[in-house]
Amino acid sequence: MAELGVGIVGANPDTGWAFTAHVPAIAATEGLRVTAVATTREATAKRAAAELGTDVGWHTDPVALVRDPKVDIVLISVKVPKHRELIMPALEAGKQVLSEWPLGVDTAEATALAEAADRAGVRGFIGFQGRGDPVINQARRLIGDGALGELQALSVRSSRSKGSAISAANAYTLDVSSAAGNLEVHGGHLIDLLGHLIPGLAVINGETALLRRTYRIAGTETEVTATSPDVFTAAVRLGDSGGVGGLTVWDGDPDARTVITLQGLDGRLDLHTVDPGGDHRLRQPQMAPFAGMITVGGRTTDLAPPPNDLPVAARNVATLYANLVRDLREGTTTAPTFADAVAVHRELDLIR
């Protein structure tokens, strides 16, 4: 069966997330290959293409990439405010789309994109890669099999290590209009992961706060003002069980991690992220590997991730791509979609 070609919009080989996570994940996925790249600068686009192979096309106009006959799937890996103007031409051209989360700057924009994908008759996929974590999926199966019994209570704390200094490349995330702050990126990925772990989980309400209002650009004395909340809490309901839970999510933790405790009438699940080392961004719950244990009837069973030779940032993304290919080939619905993105956008609205 012929390979599916992926065109990457936002393929900066120096600072782009696409090269860090998506390129190795695509290379590890049977039935996929990168066939075209696009960046705003010719020199960067040419270099990205050269690093990926002599037959990879390059573009400075993303619409030209969308129209490239070698491109079947368009990956959108740019800042959120640009998503709509780049996704729409891809949908209109009948191309399948994988967008990084968040899908849009707000729920209205995300809903419009989901509706446009439906009208175009193509698949819109969203980058909720946390669903690919092997321990999260093992725990999901155990919960589904009734190992914990009726679910009673959930406690979650999740932190990132963003402190008083921030890189110039990431300073834009401090602006609430970027839709790329703690609530949107960290919170959105976490809430989707928890909804995957515990089907039927729903946000009831929440509250946000902005505590650190100024940051310094790393390596300089330049200060920038933050307008995006750096802390939030949320109350959740655990599906049909009647159980409830709470989330506390924040920035500025030098020992950043995610800890999940789920109590049922018959047992308890304890999960935590494992520090992968290196880039502090990899400690976020959609990337850091989970480990933990399940305790039932006084007997504890450890849950540990299997060996994986891929870079940490690419592991869960590779699972997302494997599911995406299966969905396109077999008509299944295993990869997260634009509809899933709209659902999380709506849950974030209940927290704001």
Rank of each mutant, 00 (worst) to 15 (best):
L103Y: 09
D118H: 08
E184T: 11
D240Q: 10
V236G: 03
V244K: 13
P305K: 05
V71D: 00
D230Q: 06
L32Y: 01
A48H: 00
V249P: 00
F232M: 04
G104V: 01
G57V: 11
A25N: 04
L201E: 08
V135E: 10
L190K: 02
G267H: 06
T319A: 12
G127V: 03
E221N: 14
D270H: 08
S158Y: 09
N182D: 09
D133V: 08
I126D: 11
A339G: 07
R160S: 15
T225D: 10
V97S: 01
T273Y: 07
R141N: 12
L210E: 13
T107Q: 07
A48R: 00
A110V: 08
P254H: 13
A27R: 06
I294W: 07
A341W: 10
A256D: 13
P254T: 14
K70F: 11
A139K: 02
G16Y: 02
E347L: 09
G10A: 04
W17K: 02
V236E: 10
S228W: 08
I166F: 04
R257V: 14
L91S: 00
I217W: 11
G10F: 08
G278D: 12
G206W: 13
A202Q: 12
P134Y: 13
V63Q: 04
H83Q: 03
E207F: 10
P199E: 15
R326E: 15
V244R: 14
V74S: 01
A335W: 06
V274G: 06
E30H: 06
G146L: 13
R212G: 04
T227E: 10
R213S: 06
I351S: 09
L154H: 05
V203F: 09
T273H: 01
D72T: 05
A314W: 03
A235P: 00
T300H: 04
R131E: 15
V259E: 15
G187V: 12
R123W: 10
A43P: 03
A322D: 14
A27S: 11
H22V: 08
Q286D: 15
E42W: 03
A313S: 09
D145K: 09
V34G: 05
S177N: 14
S159I: 14
P285A: 08
G298I: 11
A314D: 05
M287A: 12
G144F: 10
D270R: 06
A108P: 02
H59G: 01
E223Q: 11
S241I: 13
V224A: 06
S241E: 13
I294N: 03
V312F: 06
A291Y: 09
V78W: 00
D253E: 10
I136F: 05
G206R: 04
A288N: 04
D118Q: 14
V231P: 02
G298S: 05
E85Y: 00
K95Q: 03
M287N: 11
P199C: 13
V296P: 02
Y172E: 09
V105Q: 07
E100N: 08
A21P: 01
E42R: 00
A112D: 15
T300G: 00
T29Y: 02
L148G: 02
L174D: 10
T227A: 07
E30M: 09
D251E: 14
A93D: 08
S228P: 04
T29D: 07
L269K: 00
L262D: 06
A168I: 10
L103E: 06
G121R: 03
K70A: 13
P289M: 10
